[in-house]
Design a protein around this nucleic acid. Structure first.
Lengths: 341, 341
DNA sequence: GGTTTAGGTTTAATCGATTAACCATGTTTA
DNA sequence: TAAACATGGTTAATCGATTAAACCTAAACC
């Protein structure tokens, strides 16, 4: 960076004190400054191409207008889309965003949190990995404003914005039954993240409600870490089950990516042999030969609410705001009703 | 934020000066400090849970270990994936990243650049929208280190990392001819961005080389702004052309998203009626009923090189590094060879 | 015995802004 | 006429670090 101009430089050129320049450029004490002087200062600032040093300002005011966003993986379209809406909304409020991906790794998550806090972010938007309750707790102790995104811990009182996963899952199953399907199965993750458990619970409860026998066998859990092979195995298991499975719910967009790719190669036909529902919106769902019905999260609203909640928390750290937003089921060809047998 | 501990607090508790604490915690002057004192200071810092205030440090050292990344839209899987690799690579060097989306809007782009520069980022990674030469020029005048990503301006001497789009495009066409296709067409953008023009030029040159008549008719240009309808029209036009088009190149991943969705609904069959090639990797390409051949950008390498180049530019602002990386064509079913007629 | 030298630590300036408190001078007002 | 007010501006402390330079003591050297 070449000769960056500071308030002092402007003050010198204008023959006034730096303080006055600051007052003028920030429009503080507006009626205590001579109009002519103000005009002159502004002109010089413009001419010298002055830009405030946000580091210095932040240090002094204890406010950086910077937020930190931590998702599991910004490369994941779900997170990326959410990040985009969050960016839009925070920009509307003059905030800039630091981002980081935790890879569902607690250690990485903690490091990112600390890095961001050390940079004096005004607040954090977090999708914490499993088992991060203690880190969340520390943040609360430290008084750092934050809001949980997409996930939360039922035992911990913290602000969050998340999908009503239980209902979303439950209603997806209901839709399948309404279309004449008798034995829906689901591939999902087996970790302790609450939002995933809610999806799984919604699935099981819906099966029970519809009096499906042995519902436990219809939920195949895979590990987040090495999922590709596991997902394919899970699908194989379900497709060869007796009695025959006639619908499949893919419990996340990563599962869907892998699952659809695999199903694309299998002889099984969608929707005649099997119906398909995926969680989360994605380009590929429309591009599949039988466009896939999906549980759509209102990402724009979630992003908007996350920022709104965070800003309110920053303004009033004591408040607690928890919002569960409803999903909508976008019905496409993959769950076309079968004729009653 | 509650009582944040500063160097001074530690100094007080340890009964030493703040300077000494700084020396110890930064391991500067390491052999001039009493081992016992150092140990004690470290213990107290640990106990008080000290974290350096990066704002203050940055203000003093003129180094923030923060980079700014501006893409056209972080919600776009292409940008998101790239962002992810950039994040990884910059994290390896202790850098944190601010991000922003320009929406191919020059005004927004300029604002983001300024916001980031005011926050004293150490450098910028930029995918500038069309017509941003002046902004780039100003950055050079101001001496802000930056590297252009994915795009560049041939007339402006600036560091960049970009795909060799001309060759990528040219070879995609060659592959089609090698598979027996006679009249490949392309849907691409009509803006002045150089990297897009290179793609278009590669296409045209390859047609000429293969002595295709009226190559101009085979390139349909659409506008970035309102592309959906335009893309569908372009595809309609090409599919009904005489003589018959037997291959289609989708010139970007946004065009591919829309195009594949549309082709999915049309009666035309891939690859028998028409071959398909897309630019950029994407989940959906594998999920299409006839997995789509695509021009794969080495995103990880591009991300790595971008950071490497930027860090070198930060260290030595005079240097100029321009790298064109080669694409690889990932051949899938959508361009299966047709039997010679 | 006086002067280096090395070890160990402190002082104080500085980065670039913000802002409470103060100082002049002129003008009302009681 | 003196106190009160308005106007226009300056001073100086401060935010939390970094770091060159100075300071002090005791041991080492000539």
């Amino acid at each position: 960076m070449r000769k960056v101009v500071s308030l002092k430089d402007i003050a010198q050129k204008a023959g006034v004190s730096a303080a006055l320049v600051s007052y003028v450029l920030n429009n503080t004490r507006v009626n205590r400054v001579n109009k002519e002087t103000a005009k002159k200062i502004r002109a010089i600032a413009e001419e010298m191409n002055y830009n405030v040093n946000q580091l210095a300002r932040g240090l002094k005011t204890n406010k950086t207008f910077t937020l930190g966003l931590i998702v599991s993986n910004i490369g994941n379209p779900f997170s990326a889309t959410l990040a985009r809406f969050i960016e839009n909304e925070s920009a509307r409020h003059q905030y800039t965003t630091l981002f980081g991906s935790s890879d569902e790794n607690k250690k990485k998550f903690e490091q990112l949190v600390n890095t961001f806090v050390n940079r004096q972010v005004d607040g954090l938007i977090l999708s914490p990995p499993a088992g991060s309750e203690d880190i969340i707790g520390q943040l609360q102790d430290r008084g750092v404003p934050f809001v949980l995104l997409d996930r939360y811990y039922p035992g911990i009182p913290a602000s969050y914005i998340a999908l009503d996963n239980y209902t979303a899952s439950f209603e997806a199953v209901q839709h399948l039954f309404a279309g004449g399907r008798k034995r829906p199965a689901m591939v999902s993750y087996g970790n302790e993240l609450f939002h995933i458990q809610e999806r799984n619970r919604g699935f099981i409860e819906a099966l029970k409600k519809n009096k499906v026998t042995a519902p436990g066998n219809l939920l195949q859990l895979v590990d987040v870490a090495d999922d590709k092979k596991e997902i394919e195995n899970a699908i194989d298991t379900l497709l060869s089950a007796v009695p025959r499975v006639d619908a499949l719910i893919l419990g996340s967009n990563t599962i869907a990516t892998c699952g659809l790719r695999y199903i694309n190669k299998l002889p099984v036909k969608v929707p005649s042999d099997i119906a398909l529902i995926s969680f989360d919106q994605a380009e590929m769902l429309d591009v599949f030969y039988s466009p896939v019905t999906y549980v759509k999260q209102p990402l724009e609203e979630i992003g908007r609410l996350a920022i709104k909640t965070l800003l309110e928390t920053i303004a009033n750290p004591k408040g607690l705001i928890s919002i569960k937003v409803p999903a909508t089921l976008v019905v496409q060809e993959s769950t076309k009703a079968v004729s009653a047998q």
